[in-house]
Simulated assay, not measured.
Amino acid sequence: MGRRKIDIAEVKDPNDRQVTFSKRRTGLFKKANDLSVKCGAELAIVMFSPAKRPYSFGHPSVNVVADKFLRKNPTSNYVRENDAPDDEVDDIERLRQQLSVVEVHINEEQKKATELDEREKEQETSEAQNKELQNSPVLRRMVEDYVDAIEVSECMLLLAKEPVIGISNRPICKRRRRN
Score class of each variant (00 low, 15 high):
K12M: 05
Q110M: 07
V143Y: 10
R178P: 00
I150L: 12
P85V: 08
K131Q: 13
S136C: 12
G40S: 09
G58K: 03
P60D: 06
V164Q: 09
I106F: 13
A160N: 11
E124H: 13
V79W: 04
L116S: 05
V102R: 12
R177M: 04
S168C: 10
Q129W: 10
A66N: 03
E10C: 01
T114V: 13
E127V: 13
A51H: 08
V65W: 00
G27V: 04
A9E: 03
I8V: 10
A66M: 14
R178Q: 05
R17L: 14
N130E: 06
R53Q: 14
V143D: 05
N33R: 14
N179Q: 00
N130H: 09
P14G: 11
F48W: 10
N77G: 14
L95I: 13
D91R: 12
E122K: 05
K12Y: 07
N179A: 00
P137C: 07
E108A: 12
S61M: 03
P85N: 13
S126N: 07
E81S: 15
V65M: 07
F21N: 10
Q110L: 12
Q18S: 04
G27Y: 07
V62E: 01
L99D: 07
S56R: 05
I106Q: 15
A44D: 03
V147T: 06
K23D: 11
G40D: 14
N73M: 08
H59P: 02
V138D: 00
G27K: 09
E93W: 04
R141K: 11
P14R: 12
R80K: 05
R80M: 03
N33T: 11
R170H: 14
E103V: 00
H105L: 14
K38R: 13
S153C: 14
N33W: 01
C39W: 02
S136P: 03
P171Y: 09
L28W: 06
H59T: 09
Q98K: 15
K161M: 08
N169C: 11
S153H: 08
R176E: 04
K30G: 10
Y55S: 06
V46A: 03
I172W: 07
S22D: 09
A113V: 08
K52A: 05
S22V: 06
S153D: 15
D117G: 09
R25S: 03
N82I: 02
K111I: 02
I106K: 15
I165F: 13
E10L: 07
S49I: 02
P14D: 07
D7K: 07
A84H: 03
L159M: 09
D87T: 08
P14L: 11
R176C: 01
F69P: 02
I167V: 15
L159F: 06
I167G: 07
Q129G: 01
L28D: 05
D83K: 00
M47S: 10
E93M: 09
S153I: 14
E109L: 15
S49R: 01
G2W: 00
P137A: 12
M47W: 02
L28F: 10
E154Q: 10
R177A: 04
I45T: 01
R80N: 01
R4L: 02
S61P: 01
K112P: 03
I106D: 09
G166N: 06
C173R: 10
N33Q: 07
P171K: 13
N130Q: 11
R141P: 00
V46S: 06
P137S: 13
R96G: 06
E108G: 04
A84M: 02
S126L: 02
P60K: 09
E81K: 12
L158V: 04
E162F: 11
K131M: 11
E120I: 07
R140E: 10
